[in-house]
Amino acid sequence: MAVLVTAGRLCHLAGRTVTSLSARSRRAVSLPATRCYIFTSTRTNLQFRLDEQTAHSSLDLFKKDTGVIYRMLGLDPTHVQDNPERFRDWAVVFADEKISSGRHYWEVTVKKSQEFRLGVAEALMSRDDCVGTNSSSWVFGYAQRKWFAMTGNKVVPVMLVGKPDRVGILLDYEAGFLGLVDIEKPRIIHTIGAQFKAPLCPAFGLWDGELLTHSDLEEPEGLKQEEL
């Protein structure tokens, strides 16, 4: 059964808060009811780095472009190389690999961040949008000490106790789902269903602290078909 929530403030413009829906248009929304997925796609180890050409001016990459840190002031956008691939308004960065088939797994270490988003987005997604606010991106986010799943500006709470230091992301392109993984169990905590039709990139939004990505990983044993 779909969970109803109110889509309100969930994105930040660098240096200030932005409300994603006006008070007049704010209403209860829901994601499609969760389904039982049959995992049949080819499994390959995805290896990527973060793509500096897409990084918003408030984000700095480090550790050979596998990590990203948020700078409160960041760089003056006029001092950043003009690039149509770069996010202009939102603190978002894409990975440098495109996914158009298969089943892929990666992990993210969270360091001192209380607001971030992890997931995938179409490679050609508008650089004027934030991940999760349109139908071209699918993310799991953490804000105000709560987890949520988000796509098309529709939000569903994710029942996860606490904030783990490291989580996994599982994408099955053909089966049509993105999963948030508890790597300690391991188990899939929540899934977002979708019909992927275009190449995807791992996508990250960050409004404080740091994220460190870990790719070229084997999918953990024990992740089985679940109904979430």
Rank of each mutant, 00 (worst) to 15 (best):
V3R: 11
V3G: 05
V3W: 04
R9G: 10
R9P: 06
L10P: 00
C11M: 08
H12M: 11
G15A: 02
V18R: 13
R24N: 12
R26N: 07
A28Y: 10
S30M: 12
A33R: 11
A33T: 11
T34G: 09
T34P: 10
Y37K: 09
S41G: 05
F48Q: 07
A55E: 03
D60R: 15
L61W: 03
F62S: 15
F62Q: 10
D65K: 15
D65E: 11
D65C: 08
V68C: 03
V68N: 03
I69M: 13
L73N: 15
H79N: 11
V80L: 09
N83T: 10
P84T: 06
D89Y: 15
D89Q: 12
K98P: 02
S100I: 03
G102C: 09
H104F: 02
H104N: 12
Y105Q: 07
E107Y: 01
E115D: 12
F116R: 05
R117M: 03
E122P: 05
E122H: 08
D129R: 12
C130L: 08
S137F: 00
F140M: 08
G141L: 04
A143H: 14
F148C: 11
F148Q: 10
V158M: 07
L160T: 06
P164H: 12
V167P: 08
E174K: 09
A175D: 04
G176P: 01
L178A: 05
P186H: 01
I188H: 09
F196K: 07
A198H: 15
A198D: 14
L200P: 04
C201A: 13
E210T: 12
E210N: 11
L211F: 09
L212M: 13
T213Q: 01
H214A: 14
L217N: 11
E219I: 15
E221C: 15
K224N: 14
Q225M: 13
E227P: 11
L228M: 13
